[in-house]
Design a protein around this nucleic acid. Structure first.
Length: 442
RNA sequence: GCCCCGGUAGUGUAGCGGCCUAUCAUCCGAGCCUGUCGAGCUCGGGACUCGGGUCCGAAUCCCGACCGGGGCGCCA
């Protein structure tokens, strides 16, 4: 006789269990009571198992189990019976059951209701939303993606680091910083580990990465912006050009896509997503070529202009159609468009160009980076152009005076990556508890 | 920050000046049913975001508040 504590998951029950008693447990997903026989769909982490109850066998138990509210948590001790009618090929004939926690009614969000629910309603009741296999699958894919990225980078000799999320100054414009109180000083939530990962390039740890939250107080209310997102940041020293940085980004995407396609096959199946990485190398086009492509596709855009959302989307279509790739690099962004990126190295021949690149996935930017300016004097000059207060960057600048190798890196938006991978209409779908301009709870 | 759009039962919707005692589905409750798996059938339950205004009459029109959705800019 198994104990109440030893619960067999629905996917562990096999032919060998037939005739023996097991304990199953989980949430009462559905009760189909036909009068003399009743079917309880009991859901656990692995799936759903059917508990079949006969009235004439045990009228008392029949009555009690059928009067449960949906989504109550119960454990059932019963005999595993092979059955042609049951979907799994077996069902549980209960001997006894325990109610661990009865659910109230009505549910604020149905788990298996045959009607939709707004994202807002779902997020307000995220724990219930996550009881749906197809929602949980998103986060399993996300975890698998992160595992693939970590494995790849570790194999490539990268060291995972963690840098402060409470900082004294921002890496980019000050308007997107969340101010916080820090004892008797004022501080901010880090919008990027930019300054720290560059700082580390002077440390001898010449290949590093960090996977951590980044905070942006942008007043951006779109399906691809959130105030707190997970940023994969990579920095590599002793590079020759931005091309070396692109190669790292490409390696991460390629290997993690393949890893997910393999290791998350079940979840992709649930989500109806067919995933694969395009052949490497991914196409690379320059910013100027991108503008020309857009213009030849009847978009009104001039050289020197930002691609804009419309341009990015159109370019995604064009690259898929003409180059057969959902992933592609846009390289050599003009300096005028990266003006705020004071640490970007400019082209030696043409200072109006940077070596900065974006990696776009299905018409949306997921990675942005390039070679940094590692020469102290030039860096200071570029910071002055941006009217930056050099004193508040003292710790950052110091590292450039005592042996800073050439280096580069990028920021990689994990949720955007998952969003595009799974064709999610809103980035919030890829975050358990998203933070945006208005949402702070749950 | 700018520009659109919307808020009707627990959930999702229809209705857009009087046919509203508000539609449909889902859900909940009662009943029938021994193989359901989008179970079926019968009966029942439950809602117009809030505050002003217009009008003989407001879910419906106007103003404001609150809440939400989408787009742009910007970005990961």
């Amino acid at each position: 006789m198994p104990s109440w504590q030893h619960i067999t998951y629905s996917d562990e029950i096999a032919a060998e269990h037939a005739g023996s008693i097991v304990t199953v447990g989980g949430w009462v997903q559905e009760i189909r009571n036909l009068g003399g026989i009743s079917f309880i769909q009991l859901r656990d982490r692995a799936g759903v198992v059917q508990v079949t109850v006969l009235k004439k066998k045990n009228p008392e138990l029949f009555k009690e189990i059928n009067s449960l509210q949906r989504e109550s948590v119960i454990t059932v001790k019963g005999v595993v019976k092979e059955s042609k009618e049951a979907k799994k090929g077996y069902e549980i004939i209960p001997e006894e059951f325990r109610v661990l926690n009865a659910a109230a009614s009505p549910l604020p969000l149905g788990v298996v209701d045959k009607v939709g629910a707004d994202l807002d309603t779902r997020l307000n009741n995220r724990f219930l939303d996550l009881r749906k296999a197809e929602i949980r699958a998103i986060f399993q894919v996300r975890a698998t993606t992160l595992a693939g990225i970590r494995r790849h980078l570790t194999d490539e000799g990268f060291v995972e680091v963690t840098t402060p999320k409470i900082v004294a100054a921002g890496a980019e414009g000050g308007s997107t910083l969340f101010p916080i109180k820090y004892f008797d000083k004022s501080a901010y939530l880090a919008q990027s580990p930019q300054l720290y990962k560059q700082n580390l390039m002077a440390s001898g740890m010449d290949r590093i990465f960090e996977i951590a939250p980044a905070y942006r107080a942008e007043a951006s209310d779109t399906v691809r912006h959130i105030a707190e997102f997970t940023s994969l940041d990579v920095e590599v020293a002793f590079i020759e050009s931005s091309e070396d940085v692109m190669a790292v980004a490409e390696g991460i995407v390629h290997s993690s896509l393949n890893h997910v396609a393999e290791a998350a096959r079940r979840e992709l199946d649930i989500l109806g997503v067919d995933l694969s990485s395009p052949e490497t190398p991914y196409p690379r086009i320059t910013y100027d070529e991108a503008i020309d492509l857009l213009r030849s596709n009847d978009m009104e855009i001039d050289h020197g202009e930002d691609l804009g959302t419309e341009g990015e989307k159109l370019l995604g279509d064009i690259m898929l159609k003409k180059r057969g790739s959902e992933l592609y690099f846009i390289t050599k962004f003009p300096t005028s468009l990266k003006r705020g990126t004071f640490y970007a190295k400019r082209d030696d021949e043409d200072p109006e160009l940077t070596g900065y690149f974006d990696l776009d996935y299905r018409g949306q930017e997921i990675v942005s980076g390039g070679q940094r300016e590692h020469r102290y004097d030039v860096l200071v000059e570029q910071m002055r152009e941006n009217d930056l207060n050099l004193e508040s960057f003292a710790f950052y600048l110091k590292a450039f005076k005592y042996g800073m190798p050439p280096h580069g890196g990028f920021g990689f938006g994990i949720e955007r990556y998952v969003q595009k991978m799974l064709n999610l209409s809103n980035i919030r779908e890829a975050v358990l508890y998203p933070r945006d301009r208005v949402r702070l709870i749950p």
